[in-house]
Design a protein around this nucleic acid. Structure first.
Length: 435
RNA sequence: GUGGGUUUAGCUCAGUUGGUUAGAGCGCCGCUCUGUGGAAGCGGAGGCCGGGGGUUCAAGUCCCCUAAUCCACCCCA
């Protein structure tokens, strides 16, 4: 096929655009379902005081490398770089939202706003990954960040908000997996412990885990290899939570205390490892069985170290993001139908070509108070209703010579079948009456 | 980067052991229907069978390459 979108991208089409209303477009490409997710997130997050922020979808390469972390797969092999003529270090299509938001916070002096500053955004992210279920090269996230406060109360609020967004959309099967990766010193201690523990048994590790032992030993713990899991059990490997320092342990206890008190459910998961380097302490993922191999809808955590890493002052922060495509997959798996754009309140058509302009004029008049569409050409009476029905209109109106002469329309409510002659001057008011 | 499956109309799919002009359902357009919709009937448009190469008298069908897509590994949302 000559015309083909780039690998790992999707067109977001109007809902139902495959032709029939009974057969929806593919669940992961419905533009109106997407909009419903972001609108729901906006409503919930802004109620909590979050302000909308939008940052560029490309950033300086150096910002992304330092923000995400040089040891991550994202930086090692998944970046889309932007080249152009000129003497410059290059740009990168953003693989996640946090680094750009923290950059904007520092660059624009947002620290003078009341603290903590709660921000939210949504938009496309880019990773040069191989494609599979719920994994795209351009995907979309809803992103929430709270900058400026280190208190555990803020972590707990962030988790509660994330859960509220997906539950408000109707999702039932999502579970929070909660852990803590401690402070950097704690993690260093723990990684040392893991290396000491596994190195004598190096040959028994899977090939992937042999790699992990050097790069990121914590990854061994959630390996899918049965031999790895058997070895972990046999050695009685202790969890990260045992190695939390006093400060991190206290913080984690507080987070859990708030969630318990508020009735926000979660599963304690000591093997939680975040993919990005900047995380500290609280880390969590939101999982759902419907979304494929990795089952993660999204994740979040505290990243008190990022600001300094980017060259700013030490500023504590916590945030999360979820993938909109993955959320739609999960909703689809639960059979949840999201609302799509409603049809017009009025569809109006003329019976004769000389009145089509009048029909359009009336539609324009009605648009002052409601949605209205018109037929661009004259229709036979039967087809007026057929066309109105196809557009899912509430009312159909037709104009023949009698109506045109008397300045009225014949108006029919398509659901209950009631019909009236309404003067054009009274039409707007009539349409607004409850039917 | 690796392994496996798939690719025929807008969508979901048939297509015999290779053999004339490639089919169905839904959808789309029109007619029956010039003052009343959802139905039904009839008619129509729409395909270089993902792309390229090869075998053959003959390829949607067999072989090779390639792309996309789906599932999985690594890893992430």
């Amino acid at each position: 096929m000559a015309l083909q979108r780039p690998k790992g991208t999707q067109d977001h089409l109007p809902d139902g655009s495959s032709g029939s209303h009974s057969k929806a477009a593919r669940s992961d490409t419905r533009a109106e379902a997407f909009a419903h997710v972001t609108e729901t997130a906006r409503r919930i997050l802004t109620r909590g005081g979050a302000r909308l922020i939008q940052t560029p979808i490309f950033e300086e390469a150096d910002l992304v490398r330092r923000g995400v972390g040089g040891s991550t797969d994202i930086v090692r092999k998944e970046m889309f770089t932007v080249h152009y003529f000129g003497d410059h270090g290059g740009f990168i299509l953003r693989p996640e939202g946090t680094a750009g938001i923290v950059r904007a916070y520092l660059e624009n002096g947002l620290k003078q706003w009341p603290s903590p500053l709660k921000l939210w955004t949504h938009g496309p992210m880019f990773r040069a990954e191989n494609v599979q279920k719920g994994r795209l090269r351009q995907f979309h996230q809803v992103d929430y960040e709270v900058i400026g406060v280190a208190d555990a109360l803020i972590d707990a609020e962030a988790i509660a908000l994330m859960v509220e967004v997906v539950q408000t959309l109707g999702l039932k099967g999502a579970r929070v997996k909660l852990g803590s990766i401690g402070d950097p010193a704690d993690r260093e201690t723990y990684n040392g412990y893991l290396r000491e523990t596994f190195t004598p048994h190096f040959e028994r590790l899977s090939d992937d885990s042999k790699d992990r032992l050097e790069r990121n030993p914590m990854r061994i713990l959630d390996s899918k290899s049965q031999t790895d899991q058997a070895l972990i059990a046999e050695l009685g490997v202790r969890p990260m939570l045992d190695f939390l320092g006093e400060a991190a342990a206290g913080h984690f206890t507080q987070v859990r205390g708030y969630l318990d008190a508020w009735g926000v459910g979660y599963d304690l998961d000591p093997s939680i490892v975040r993919g990005l380097d900047y995380y500290r302490r609280t880390a969590w993922e939101l999982h759902h069985e419907g979304v494929g191999a990795k089952s993660a809808l999204g994740g979040g955590g505290r990243y008190d170290g990022l600001s300094a890493e980017l060259g700013g002052p030490e500023i504590p922060a916590v945030g999360w993001a979820f993938g909109i495509e993955r959320l739609l997959i999960a909703l689809d798996a639960e059979g949840i139908e999201l609302p799509q754009q409603a049809g017009p309140l009025l569809f109006i058509a003329a019976l004769d070509p000389e009145h089509t302009g009048l029909a359009a004029q009336i539609a324009l008049q009605v648009r002052a108070v409601a949605s209205a569409e018109f037929a661009y050409r004259a229709l036979k009476p039967g087809n007026v209703f057929k066309e109105a029905e196809r557009r899912r209109a509430t009312y159909a109106a037709l104009i023949g010579s009698e109506e045109a002469a008397s300045g009225s329309v014949t108006l029919k409510h398509l659901q209950n079948g009631t019909q009236h002659h309404v003067n054009v001057n009274d039409l707007n008011a009539f349409l607004l009456e409850p039917s």
